[in-house]
C-alpha cells in the first residue's frame, strides 16, 4: 500500500538538482507551469520537452519512477479524448463506420496530454530532488512578502507537520485494517456498496485517533513553549548560490522568449496548422 505512492516522494541522491536551492527549484517550477500553459506551438513544445528531458538526466531519476507517476494519466487521457470527440468538430473528418472523428480532436487531445505529461514530470523532478522539509522552508521564504496579511510560518508549519505524520497515519491505517479484518470486516471482496460500508469501519477509528493525536501533539508543542505568533529563530538555513541565480535567469530568459514568440504570432502559424505541417512532410 505504501510502496504504491511514487508521486511526490523524495529520492535521496546528490545530483545537480538535489544541490540546487529549494527556493530556486520552486521558482523554476512556477516558471515552467506558466510556460506550459502558453500556446507555444510545435517547436516550443519540442524545446520544452528537451528541457524536461535534460532535467530528468540531470536529476538521475529512473525512467520507471516517471512511468509510475504517470499512471493516473491514462484514465485522464481517455476521458479527455472522449470529451474532445464530441466537442471538437474541426479539421479533416475521418469516417470510421458510423462515427466521424475530426483530426483536430486527436491533436487537441495530444496537446493536452503532452502538457499534462510535462507538468507531472516536472513536479515529480521537483519533489524527488527536494526534501519535504526544504519545500516547506522554501514556501515560507518565498511567501514572506505576504507576512503583513497572513502568518506564513503557520502555513509552512502545517505542511511540515502533515508531511511528518503521513507515514505515522499510514502505519495506523494498516493496523486498524488488520484489527478490523480480524473482526471479520472484508475490505477486498463484495459489491461497491459493501466495500464502502467496510471502509467506514476503517475511516471512523482513523479519524478518532487522528484527532486524539493532534490534541496530544498540540499539547507537546505548547509545552515546548511554541507560539506561532511569537518571535522565533530558525535552525534550517537555505544557501542561495551563484548557480541558482544562473539557472533562474536562464529560465526567465526562456520564458520571456516563449512569451514573445506567442505574442508575435510566430507560434500561431505553427500551431493552427500542425496537421498541415505533418502533411507537408509527406508531400
Amino acid at each position: 500500500m505504501m510502496s504504491n505512492i511514487t508521486l511526490g516522494r523524495y529520492i535521496p541522491n546528490n545530483t545537480f538538482f538535489h544541490r540546487l536551492d529549494p527556493r530556486c527549484k520552486l521558482l523554476l517550477l512556477f516558471i515552467f507551469m506558466i510556460t506550459i500553459f502558453i500556446n507555444l506551438g510545435m517547436i516550443g513544445y519540442i524545446v520544452l520537452g528537451l528541457v524536461v528531458l535534460l532535467c530528468f538526466i540531470l536529476s538521475k531519476i529512473s525512467i520507471l519512477t516517471i512511468f509510475k507517476s504517470l499512471k493516473p494519466m491514462w484514465f485522464m487521457m481517455i476521458f479527455i479524448f472522449v470529451i474532445n470527440l464530441f466537442v471538437v468538430k474541426t479539421g479533416t473528418p475521418w469516417h470510421l463506420g458510423k462515427i466521424t472523428i475530426y483530426s483536430n480532436a486527436i491533436f487537441a487531445t495530444l496537446k493536452i496530454v503532452y502538457r499534462l505529461f510535462l507538468l507531472i514530470s516536472t513536479s515529480t523532478i521537483f519533489t524527488a530532488t527536494t526534501k519535504p522539509l526544504d519545500i516547506t522552508i522554501a514556501i515560507e521564504d518565498l511567501f514572506a512578502f505576504l507576512k503583513p496579511i497572513m502568518n506564513v510560518h503557520i502555513l509552512s508549519m502545517m505542511i511540515s507537520i502533515a508531511l511528518r505524520f503521513i507515514p505515522t497515519i499510514l502505519e495506523e491505517t494498516n493496523r486498524i485494517m488488520k484489527a478490523q479484518a480480524s473482526r471479520g470486516v472484508d475490505f477486498v471482496h463484495g459489491k461497491l456498496k459493501e466495500k464502502a460500508k467496510a471502509i467506514t469501519s476503517l475511516i471512523i477509528p482513523l479519524f478518532v485517533s487522528a484527532f486524539a493525536r493532534s490534541d496530544e501533539l498540540a499539547n507537546a508543542m505548547e509545552a515546548r513553549s511554541y507560539n506561532p505568533y511569537a518571535q522565533r529563530t530558525r535552525y534550517r538555513k537555505l544557501h542561495w548560490q551563484f548557480k541558482d541565480s544562473l539557472i533562474l535567469i536562464l529560465s526567465i530568459v526562456l520564458l520571456a522568449g516563449f512569451i514573445t514568440l506567442a505574442i508575435t504570432g510566430f507560434a500561431k502559424t505553427w500551431n493552427t496548422s500542425i496537421f498541415e505541417w505533418i502533411k507537408g512532410w509527406f508531400k
Partner: peptide, 17 residues
C-alpha cells in the same frame, strides 16, 4: 510529541521557540 522531520529538527524545535 515528535514534531521535526528528523531527530535534529525535532531537537531544534524547542530551541527555535
Amino acid at each position: 510529541q515528535f514534531i521535526g522531520s528528523t531527530v535534529r529538527d525535532d531537537m531544534a524545535f524547542g530551541l527555535e521557540n
